[in-house]
């Protein structure tokens, strides 16, 4: 029975909420108050009038905990819909990162070369530094940052995960 499964899984959950004050605090408070993990969180308005926001949260837990997280989110008054993108079918998840690398000489050249293979763009440059912009799945960004560590990695800013179901499915 899946409910009794004790293995941990990661889940990308998308939540459509009224874009009203306090709604993000409600969602975050729910996670902290009930001791759930937040590995990543993004939020922004997604309709034309700016009335609805989409919150994407990456979390982890046993099957029972993840079902509980969804049920808890679903009962918040300003929540319209909750979807478990990981469970409901294939989905795409993308994140944007800005990565600052400081260095000169051989390391600087190597950083640029790796950035190129990752299709990272240079969005700022000085004689001592680059800021790379990179989008992709979170593990691709992790891999890029890992490679930059020895090449003068100075600072990272990540957007958190935006995610959609593949094909015609919508939440």
């Amino acid at each position: 029975m899946p409910m009794t499964d004790t293995t941990q899984r990661s889940a990308t959950i998308s939540v459509l909420v009224d874009n009203e004050s306090g709604v993000l605090a409600r969602v975050i408070g729910l996670f902290s108050g009930r001791g759930y993990n937040i590995d990543s969180l993004t939020v922004a308005p997604v309709d034309q009038e700016g009335r609805l926001s989409r919150i994407n949260v990456v979390t982890s837990g046993t099957a029972m905990v993840i079902e509980q997280i969804k049920a808890q989110l679903d009962r918040l008054v300003p929540v319209h819909r909750v979807a478990d993108l990981t469970k409901d079918g294939p989905h795409v998840a993308r994140e944007l990162a800005l990565v600052k690398v400081i260095g000169t000489g051989e390391k600087r050249v190597e950083a640029l070369r790796i950035a190129d293979t990752f299709r990272a763009r240079v969005v700022d440059t000085t004689m001592q530094s680059f800021v790379f912009e990179l989008t992709g799945a979170p593990d691709k960004i992790d891999a890029f940052i890992e490679l930059m560590r020895d090449l003068g990695l100075a600072e990272v800013s990540r957007s958190g995960v935006a995610a959609l179901a593949r094909a015609t499915r919508v939440i």
């Binding site: 029972m64 079902e67 509980q68 049920a71 679903d74 009962r75």
Partner: peptide, 8 residues
């Protein structure tokens, strides 16, 4: 009536 009470 509350889905979060079930399987909690």
């Amino acid at each position: 009536i509350d889905g979060s009470s079930i399987n909690k």
